[in-house]
Design a protein around this nucleic acid. Structure first.
Length: 588
RNA sequence: GGGGGCGUAGCUCAGUUUGGUUAGAGCGCCGGCCUGUCACGCCGGAGGUCGCGAGUUCGAGUCUCGUCGCUCCCGCCA
């Protein structure tokens, strides 16, 4: 038998045709006489019928069918009897009256039902991922991912980008994330590293003159996992020569538009909004603002700098800030207990407390009101637009803590208040990032993006005197509060690259050893260049409406980095270790 | 490294607060009946290392300690 149709294709127009379908037995309904099987393939479901009056032998054979048996059936498409149509099924108007059945394979009863609405522990699902992947929501996600990748390749190819592969076995660059190491057999005691991204290779390709590069590429980072972080993940990686920020952003917008069209049949409007890092931090507290709703933060440091409320005045005195968040009309929306819960919520971000004021008709109900002068109250009320019925939260601390705590509180409040419309996609470019940040534990400057990002032209002279004020030519693309991509215009001149590496506290020996090959490449005629990389898994999670990227990855790892199907990672054989010159336990 | 949640039948969960007879339910599975179902229906049945280990106790699914796994978050990570 040879398959003639998929299980979503047949309709009333095919009535009378003899067809062959192949797929899995989704469900069996045996009425003693007639037997119905919902036959499932990757496209859909068709009801096939075994009727003893039509064919006693094939009906008898159908008794053996159980869930997930693999079947081939030949039969005639028939219009279902009046009133028996199933409108929930695309093929619900017809059924296939089977004349020939071949059981291609039997199957053990699956550990869980192949249905979407059933809730199964994730570890059971991951142990039997091949079965889990049969569920239609995962089939849909994986198919959408394939369509997105195809759209990206088509678009980038049309734009003149070359798909060039870069090595997976490469050199460790102990900057940024922890590397996965791969021991070398031919050079015992030496190690390759798996790439955290093809960053340096794509820059080298620009220096080689390829001008436009892209790759849908696996990247590896040996850090702790999250719902949106796996140890291996996929980027849509791009790099272009002779471009500035605007060029990279424009190509990126075109790419995103194409992907949304291909996957969701949705017209996304470009160009996207732009916002500086500073504005994002001021208004939203985070460098990846969710701009689908308001509830913005407001700085009141100047008003309370000399306040009688020590928590506020001390914070400002020590160089910190005081910011507020006005939850309009929420004075009665939350109980005292719930407000206390918000204090616990922000404590996670190291906020020591969360002050609040309920604005009543004639007074402010709050433990802190009594500390403020009339003047301070008046200014606060004005700046925060405090109206009766409002509930205002305050954070006071170092700016990083206040912003992070209130930034997350803002999102939490929006969720609780139903302010988020998850049918819309709000994109925003974040620009003008600071070039460096100070690492308290290591007592040195670190690149916020990476050390190959170019400083902004006009800040160049501040690199030595006031490094923290230098802005970079980096840009992130944020969608609904999630960072989906980031990139920069790179440094293409040796002198500047060295200056930046030195600003990061590297000695000449150190940068020569780690990045000597890049520096010498920059001397060989490097064109100005820049690029971007999109987190493909995160993008797909948003497109699929999933809260975890594990739902858009065929074979994801658990939070401990294990693959429950293959039991990776596992011990090595002693002989393998010996060949590699390694001593490590446990061994087999 | 730290904090929270979960772990009882193949799956989802109740039972744990207050220790006490033979650990229950729904779905699934197996058998029987049933010719128009689509979550088919009816009858019957099988199925348990209560994650694992120690402790307290006359007695532990239940209390204590340890440990393992899954998950969310902080740190870490761009």
């Amino acid at each position: 038998m040879r398959r003639s149709h998929h299980c979503n294709e047949l309709s009333i127009a095919d009535e009378g045709a003899e067809v062959v379908l192949m797929g899995w037995a989704q469900r069996r309904r045996d009425h003693g006489g007639v037997i119905f099987i919902d036959l499932r393939d990757r496209q859909g479901i068709t009801q096939v019928v075994f009727n003893p009056e039509r064919d006693a032998r094939v009906h008898e054979k159908a008794h053996a069918i159980r869930n997930e048996y693999v079947l081939a059936v030949r039969g005639v498409v028939e219009k279902r009897p009046g009133g028996m149509e199933n409108p929930a099924l695309v093929t619900g108007a017809i059924e296939v009256m089977v004349s020939e059945l071949k059981i291609l394979n039997r199957a053990e009863t699956p550990p869980f039902m192949i249905e979407d609405d059933i809730e199964v522990n994730e570890n059971t699902r991951l142990q039997h991922r091949h079965i889990d992947l049969r569920r239609s929501s995962l089939q849909r996600n994986i198919m959408m991912r394939s369509r997105a990748a195809a759209a990206a390749r088509r678009y980038l190819d049309e734009q003149g980008f070359l798909d060039i592969e870069t090595p997976c076995l490469t050199r460790s660059t102990p900057e940024g994330a922890r590397d996965f190491l791969v021991p070398s057999r031919l050079a015992p005691g030496s190690f390759y590293a798996l790439p955290q991204s093809p960053q340096l290779f794509k820059q080298l390709l620009m220096i080689s003159g390829f001008e436009k590069y892209y790759q849908i590429v696996r990247c590896f980072r040996d850090e702790d996992l999250r719902a949106d972080r796996q140890p291996e993940f996929t980027q849509i990686d791009m790099e272009m020569s002779f471009v500035g920020e605007q060029d990279v952003m424009a190509v990126s917008e075109g790419l995103i538009v194409e992907i949304f069209k291909a996957v969701l049949d949705l017209e996304v409007k470009a160009p996207f909004d732009r916002m500086t890092y500073q504005e994002a931090m001021d208004r939203y507290g985070l460098d990846r603002p969710d701009t689908r709703f308001g509830l913005e933060l407001c700085d009141i440091s100047d008003i309370v700098a000399d306040s009688g409320f020590k928590v506020f005045s001390d914070a400002v005195g020590k160089g910190g800030i005081v910011k507020a968040l006005n939850a309009k009309g929420c004075a009665e929306r939350f109980t005292r207990k719930e407000i206390d819960d918000f204090t616990d919520f922000v404590a996670v971000y190291r906020a020591k407390g969360l002050a609040w004021i309920r604005v009543k008709e004639d007074e402010w109900q709050s433990p802190i009101t009594k500390f403020f002068s009339e003047e301070e109250k008046k200014k606060m009320a004005e700046r925060l637009d405090m109206q009766p019925g409002d509930l205002v939260f305050f954070g006071a601390d170092k700016s990083s803590i206040v912003n992070e705590a209130l930034g997350h509180l803002r999102i939490e409040l929006a969720k609780k208040l139903g302010l988020i419309d998850d049918s819309i996609y709000r994109f925003v470019w974040i620009t003008d990032f600071p070039m460096l940040e100070y690492d308290e534990t290591e007592k040195r400057y670190q690149a916020l993006h990476h050390p190959f990002t170019s400083p902004a032209e006009e800040d160049m002279d501040k690199l030595e005197k006031d490094p923290l004020s230098v802005r970079s030519r980096a840009y992130d693309l944020v969608l609904n509060g999630i960072e989906i991509g980031g990139g920069s215009i790179r440094i293409h001149q040796k002198e500047l690259q060295i200056k930046v590496l030195e600003a990061l506290g590297m000695s000449r020996e150190e940068y020569e050893e780690k990045f000597g090959f890049l520096i010498s490449a920059l001397e060989s005629g490097a064109p100005p260049h820049g690029g971007i990389a999109f987190g493909f898994d995160r993008l797909m999670a948003i497109l699929c409406g999933s809260s975890s990227i594990r739902e858009v990855i065929a074979f994801p790892k658990t939070q401990k980095g294990a693959c429950l199907m293959t039991a990776a990672p596992g011990p090595a054989y002693r002989a393998q270790l010996e060949e590699l010159g390694l001593k490590a336990g446990p061994v087999k």
